[in-house]
Amino acid sequence: MNGGMALWGGFSSFFSIWQVCILQISPFFIAFIAGSYLATPDQKTDRGIFRWFIPSFIAYGASFTVLYSLLIASGLTISRPLIGNIGSLRIASGILILLVGLYILLVNRMPFLSKMHRPLLLSVLSLIIGATFAIIYSPCITPMLSDIMGLASQRNTANEGWYLAFFYGLGISIALCMTSLALILLFRGRGIILRNAGLIKNVCGIILLALAFMNMTGLMRHYKAFVLGFVL
């Protein structure tokens, strides 16, 4: 297996039966992107969309991929404290997601938040969302991920496993960002979306608050069991 194969493995897992597992994060990322989009003044032009969202997708992909691969590579010394403290990290992630959710809810209501709403801030928020989603995501073990985890868990092959996990995570990120971009392009210019922009944005914020709540209280595992229960 090489990096390209791992990238394809992660990417294709998003569009297969394993999507059920990625439902742990995908609706919430889409809520974040859709909420951010509807809060963005420069939302109607292609240039505006790309200026606001392409850096965000890159920031999300970078932080998600790095943390996801480190959490897979249990054989690496640097990963051990992360995996060992995953419970605390999930609670911290819940707090950060809560703040992002509140931001989405309140950005057009509070003047100081409206002033802060710039492409750079959106990229920073995406960086945070990427890191937190890598922490809260407990991946389903696809056959390819099984092999990667086998390599990544042993000290003598941990670097190779981490490298492959990096590309696997990158594949998932690319698929998720592509889906979100497609959604934004679908939103653009739709009268019904624009007329209900406030309501949709609020729903997106509330969805993120629900995710924050599930992570802070440990209910996330029940959510995972619920979505995966449909496969059985």
Binding site: R80, N85, G87
Partner: peptide, 11 residues
């Protein structure tokens, strides 16, 4: 949350 312990390793 409890204090974490070292992780298990193969070998």
């Amino acid at each position: 949350e409890e204090v974490s312990r070292p992780l298990l390793q193969v070998g």
